[in-house]
Design a protein around this nucleic acid. Structure first.
Lengths: 211, 211
DNA sequence: TAGATTGTTAATCGATTAACAATC
DNA sequence: TAGATTGTTAATCGATTAACAATC
């Protein structure tokens, strides 16, 4: 059971979980086996209070007078984020971004596996990207029906994104990781969407550069 | 003058600005010339109140009884985000992610220009990526001293990220767009850092997939 | 003018911080 | 035991929503 009660956890908390995970991994790599909320918070720019509040949404992982076991806490957060389970991804769009995502090295240790990559361009189909061969999108239906796919990664132009998201969702893919610069909202469907807007991120940087 | 007074704008507001910009661009592309806070909010999943509050941090761009001029509001937001100015970027790391960013098509219309890409690997140096030729990192100092560089894009392994951020900052580069999976914090230096953590984003998706 | 919609103030809601008893 | 640090409740702060007078 991930949460203590059936309370819904705020997005602000969820956003911090992967950061906790990274920082705890870092501590672990440095052979540090225990950490207090104060120390962890200081590293991450959070108050001790906030760290304890965040963690206590999911259960009491610490021990009074001692703090938290780094490896235990890291495992708990991995479990909360569900990266203790294997997830299978397909990438739609074998352009340079799709290709880069398909080869991204940091997925494996989080149990994330890219199992196929698709494109519609005949000049790209058949090419090798890492260990994968680019398949024609026309084979997508067939592929998904015969392989378990948890997440579809959209690295295609924005005008095709909505349609492809709908298709994936209809095929039973439950998660969409969207790199097309349009906000996908899937009210109709059951799929969960996570939008990554690279230019939005860069525009926040240009804002802060001058303010 | 971007803000009305010298109030500091909350991060939550800044995060929405690029979304406003995208949605207004969309409306403009569909030849819609005016929009009310209610309509814009509905499209974006915000209340009319919030739209008006957000915009009024920067000035009164609307007109009672009419709403907002789409093109005018879009221009104002572009100005607030400073994408009416040209920004010059250099990419550090010509791996597949660095390469993809160097070729990313959505930058140009926001006045963002990639002017060089660097790598340390001799087998990559000299290769062509889009219109650019990969330069050796040893030439970085010299390049930055002779060309105006606003933003450094880090697409390198995390253990090299901190050092490279420091170097860029010392060379006078004021913005760091960091794709290395470590949180760069530049208290010592004057550089502004925007972190993009792809695996964090994916972990939020796996969380929501199961909760 | 009447209707619509803004800009802005006030009320509410939620997230962060502070405080402290519990306890290892 | 004494010291440290948690889990949790209460207080504060800030962001979102509601309300409405101003006005195009």
């Amino acid at each position: 059971m991930a949460t203590k009660r059936n309370e819904s956890i705020s997005d602000a908390v969820i956003r911090r979980l992967p950061r906790y995970y990274r920082h705890l991994s870092e501590l672990l790599a440095n052979n540090i086996s225990r950490v207090s909320s104060g120390e962890l918070g200081k590293e991450m720019g959070l108050t001790a209070s906030q760290v304890r509040q965040d963690l206590n949404h999911f259960g009491g992982f610490g021990q009074q007078g001692y703090g938290y076991s780094v490896s235990n806490l890291r495992d708990e957060i991995a479990r909360i984020l569900c990266i203790d389970m294997k997830h299978r991804l397909v990438v739609i769009g074998a352009g340079s971004l799709g290709g880069a995502l398909a080869k991204y090295p940091n997925f494996a240790k989080r149990n994330l596996e890219i199992i196929a990559i698709f494109d519609q361009d005949p000049s790209v189909i058949g090419k090798k990207i890492g260990d994968l061969i680019v398949l024609p999108v026309t084979k997508l239906d067939d592929f998904v029906k015969h392989h378990p796919v948890d997440i579809g990664v959209l690295a295609i132009p924005k005008d095709q994104a909505k349609l492809m998201a709908k298709k994936l969702s209809e095929l039973g893919v439950k998660g969409i990781w969207n790199f097309s610069s349009t906000d996908l909202e899937m009210e109709e469907t059951a799929a969960v969407v996570e939008n990554v807007h690279l230019t939005d991120s860069l525009m926040r940087l240009t804002y802060r550069l001058h303010n």
